[in-house]
């Protein structure tokens, strides 16, 4: 009799642990989109990524469609090569689609914004987005402003 209650409470205890794990996975971390639907890779070259990080968001019109998978530097041209993982369901990005690095809110992190192009041709796995615009770096803007002030 005593053993029965112990076994029942141990079962409930372990079940509570599993439920807690499910809660942490689903409610707290959100089921990751790139893992669930499959993803394909695109590359984009930027002149300055300024604080973009691996796992930053890739979005189109504010909707998250992927993540930044890797960031490398091409020292020959002095450019950053960003690998983007885009959700498989977004399979009609045109070849002249644009990529910009933008900032979320005033203190928020950086993310990559994709704008759709007009070309008939569609970007495939492994293609490179050529129409890119790097991050606006506040120091550069201020520097430019100050030199222009000096000129006039």
């Amino acid at each position: 009799m005593r053993m029965r209650t112990i076994e029942i409470s141990v079962g409930a205890f372990l079940l509570a642990g599993i439920l807690a794990l499910v809660f942490l996975a689903v409610r707290v971390s959100g089921v990751s989109l790139t893992q669930s639907a499959g993803a394909y890779k695109l590359f984009a070259r930027f002149d300055d990524i300024a604080g973009l990080r691996v796992r930053s968001k890739v979005s189109m019109a504010g909707v998250t469609i992927g993540r930044v998978a890797a960031i490398d530097v091409d020292s020959e041209y002095g450019e950053a090569i960003v690998t983007l993982e885009i959700d498989k369901r977004i399979d009609n990005l045109s070849a002249d689609a644009g990529a910009q690095i933008q900032t979320e809110g005033i203190l928020g992190g950086r993310y990559v914004n994709i704008t759709q192009g007009a070309d008939e041709e569609v970007l495939q796995d492994g293609d490179t987005i050529t129409n890119t615009q790097g991050a606006l770096v506040l120091e550069n803007l201020i520097g430019e402003f100050v030199t222009r002030m000096g000129d006039s």
Partner: peptide
């Protein structure tokens, strides 16, 4: 509150 949490927390990395 919940969306910020879901965006920041990664299943393997954090949990």
């Amino acid at each position: 509150f919940w969306a910020g949490m879901e965006d920041a927390v990664e299943l393997w990395e954090d949990v």
